[in-house]
């Protein structure tokens, strides 16, 4: 962990959100500073994916309260594409297949739209291809995969690897990984972790949603949070994840119930 200790990259204050009238986020508070790695854990249905979707700007979710600032800007005011171009990247839990759009064309468009937004010249075709080749090697992405339609017919693991490959290409300031480790074999897990660790420069931050300690052996978090019923109910350091691995969530749930009753 380095970076400016006083700077805040992401600040979530009392964030509430619902979908189809169902309350899912019930007041999330989280502060992420540059260079930090935060792990978010929690039982199924707790609202982890909802939180990442709300941060990425998915329209289905209605934000009913709270605020989110990203590098001093109001994130919730921005369109999904502007959030991305400001440096937010979400590695999806379930990446969609997009037939007919090649990975290469997609990435070239994404990179050049970002550069345009930032007032930079578009990347030349040869420079782009060279850059892409480097990242493909890093992620051990097969050439056959990038020449195909985006995610079409990819295996579960290949889709996840493709998410991290895109992250490596887009070099975001803040990466939110939603269970990127689920469904990965040991080698792919190591690749994905290497991809993340390679991007770490003391400035870039990561919010890693996971159910498993094994990812956190590779990507060591500075903070671990437990999300339950739409709130962060417990935070700690890396040891909290290890504790959860052994004890499960029941003791936390009990704590929460007791607090509520008190």
């Amino acid at each position: 962990m380095s970076g400016d200790k006083n700077k805040v990259m992401l600040e979530i204050k009392d964030l509430k959100a619902e979908i189809e009238g169902k309350k899912i986020l019930n007041g999330i508070n989280l502060v992420v500073k540059p260079g930090e790695v935060h792990a978010i854990m929690g039982p199924n249905g707790a609202g982890k994916s909802t939180l990442s979707s709300v941060l990425a700007g998915r329209a289905d979710y209605v934000v009913t309260g709270g605020e989110v600032s990203f590098n001093g800007k109001d994130l919730l005011e921005m369109s999904p594409e502007d959030r991305a171009r400001e440096g937010v990247f979400l590695a999806f839990q379930y990446p969609v297949e997009i037939p007919g759009v090649s990975t290469t064309n997609f990435l070239k468009t994404a990179i050049n739209e970002k550069r345009k937004y930032l007032g930079q010249e578009p990347m030349e075709a040869t420079a782009f291809l060279k850059f892409m080749r480097e990242k493909m090697e890093l992620m051990e992405m097969d050439k056959a995969l990038t020449s195909r339609s985006l995610n079409e017919g990819f295996s579960g693991g290949e889709k996840k690897r493709n998410e991290v490959f895109q992250m490596a290409m887009l070099e975001p300031k803040l990466t939110i990984m939603d269970e990127t480790d689920s469904g990965l074999d040991i080698d792919a897990l190591r690749l994905v972790s290497a991809g993340v660790n390679k991007l770490k420069d003391g400035e870039r931050s990561f919010v890693v949603i996971t159910h498993y300690q094994r990812l956190l052996d590779y990507i060591v978090p500075d903070f671990v949070h437990v999300l339950y019923k739409g709130r962060i109910v417990k935070s700690g350091d890396a040891s909290l994840a290890k504790e959860l691995e052994v004890k499960g969530y029941d003791w936390i749930k009990t704590e929460v119930e007791q607090e509520a009753n008190a």
């Binding site: 369109s79 594409e81 171009r85 999806f92 994404a110 937004y117």
Partner: peptide, 8 residues
């Protein structure tokens, strides 16, 4: 949404 979330 997927494409937009990548800055497009």
């Amino acid at each position: 949404f997927y494409l937009r979330s990548r800055g497009i």
